[in-house]
Design a protein around this nucleic acid. Structure first.
Lengths: 301, 301
DNA sequence: GAGCAGCTATACAGAATCGTATGGACAGCG
DNA sequence: CGCTGTCCATACGATTCTGTATAGCTGCTC
């Protein structure tokens, strides 16, 4: 039985794909360039599917065959990383690594206090935050846990719905006193709206929710920057109610005309159920996010 | 940057998990027992999460920590196997390995002629058939393509619906002439019904479709055995119309009272789109299954 | 209880792998 | 144009890893 080429070869293959050169890959992995070169040569010989790369003096360029392997190679790397995480502590311990995938806003604005409380109780926990708006793959184990705004419809995932976050338009009161307050939606024409730049999906969802919105005056795809712009009094933008309500200087704009809700789920791979720290963090995220959503329904005093 | 333990160590870890012993794992991988033992020891040292196995004179028993790693380890092995498959030929060639996951009935009764025609056109294709009724994981790449009877609701999958297969009750004419023909559903009480033994999901779906069915007289979870029993004249059972119609000796029983439809999808991982042979087999499955379903709507002559 | 079969652990020699050192090629820059 | 930085390919010595051989343990069978 031929069990294929050595797995170490696949590791350097992945590194070469990402680095674009043997030397770069060797630096990544703590090897030397000749070793990386030997690995690739051995891999090509073992596969017998022709060359994987075309060598040049400024690096290795992947052939079509190598490109077809790219995503699968990353999946293997993700699996290896997940193994290391899961094995970072005994399964029944409250120590070790947990990797959480969340959106930028949640990760920067909502999670820190939740995680702080969690780590105060369990100092051995190590949290890795993967801040990305593109939903990374839980099944592929790019992360152990995830907070999702779209319902994960996949088997093999442990899912808990925690409610819906209210969204609204907000502006700093200094901005409003400067640019003039707003009585009706028609007044928005005179105002600076903060929105997205190129993120087509977000733009479309905003347009779907509020079709008669004037076009964005300030554009960025970075949602944290949007929040900062609002707080700095640059204009009017979309904000989660619970986040806005923390700052008394932020004023809700046309709360009747512009509101939306965003459902929130916490998801975890089923296999992690028996790993105690994963379950612990899962429960902490559920209760923390529930509290966060609840805070949004109360106005600041 | 510490990039974790060597991937080869994970490979022997997986083998030890499956074999239950160092010696068995070594035989699987073409290594020797001392090497396997060294690998595990090195892995335990590298992870620092305590022992992965408790050694005994009759093998290695996984600890809870090791059990938590089992499924992820298999995912890594699946990724490695998928890499070997994808790299078994140049991406633009019509040769190489394609692994298909299908149900036992489809795999044994429907696919063979489709695959025969395909291989006649492209002799370089190597087909691996994974016959399992439990839907294996496409995202985890246990297989490259799959024929599914439930709609795959996952991103990153290329899905094509090919229609619905009609199901009905059938019996061999010899059986009916021996046991008496059937005029109404009440007559079924006197007859031998072929059905499932322990497969709770299948039993429930049958009961949902035909609530007033007498209990099964002949039981097996192996659907191929069910077909064989029907063909041998043992009794009445559920059969796909297109399969039944091939054999003039099979007679439809109460076609008005007992009928159902089973939707069929062909699914493939998105990443394989650019691999030409995968696309080829995908298209062949689509057209082949479409033809199969169409054949079910015509009675045999 | 002796014998057998299966397993793990250890010692040591051989083989495969790796790193160092070097040469050659190419692109960017002053 | 020459210099520099980066890259790949090759040769050779050192290290690491692997396999063989052996001892010890356990459970089963006769």
């Amino acid at each position: 039985m031929d069990s294929g080429p050595g797995w170490e070869l696949w590791r350097t293959f992945g590194a070469v794909m990402r680095a674009g050169s043997l030397s770069g890959a060797a630096r990544m992995l703590g090897l030397t360039q000749p070793t990386a070169g030997r690995h690739i040569a051995e891999l090509e010989a073992a596969l017998g599917a022709g060359a994987l790369f075309t060598r040049s003096a400024r690096g290795l360029q992947p052939t079509e065959t190598a490109l077809a392997l790219a995503s699968e190679s990353e999946a293997m790397a993700a699996a290896a990383a997940a193994l290391v995480r899961t094995a970072s502590a005994p399964a029944d311990a409250m120590t070790g690594v947990v990797r959480i995938s969340v959106s930028e806003v949640i990760g920067a604005e909502v999670l820190p206090p939740i995680l702080a409380a969690l780590r105060a109780q369990h100092p051995g926990l190590i949290i890795e935050l993967l801040l990305t708006n593109a939903s990374s793959d839980l099944l592929r184990r790019d992360a152990d846990l995830a907070i999702r705004m779209t319902e994960p419809r996949q088997q093999a995932l442990l899912i808990k719905s925690v409610g819906r976050i209210r969204l609204g338009f907000y502006a700093h009161r200094d901005y409003l006193s400067r640019a003039g307050s707003i009585g009706s939606a028609a007044d928005l024409e005179r105002h600076a709206i903060i929105g997205f730049d190129q993120d087509a999906a977000s733009i479309r969802s905003i347009e779907a929710a509020w079709p008669d919105l004037p076009c964005f005056a300030l554009r960025t795809d970075n949602q944290l920057a949007q929040l900062a712009l609002i707080r700095a009094g640059c204009g009017i933008g979309v904000m989660q109610d619970p986040i806005a309500h923390r700052d008394p200087a932020l004023v809700s704009v046309l709360p009747e005309d512009f509101q939306a809700r965003m459902s929130v789920w916490i998801a975890m791979h089923e296999d992690l159920r028996s790993t105690r720290r994963m379950r612990l963090v899962f429960d902490a995220l559920v209760s923390g996010m529930t509290a966060h959503i609840k805070a949004g329904s109360e106005r600041q005093r």
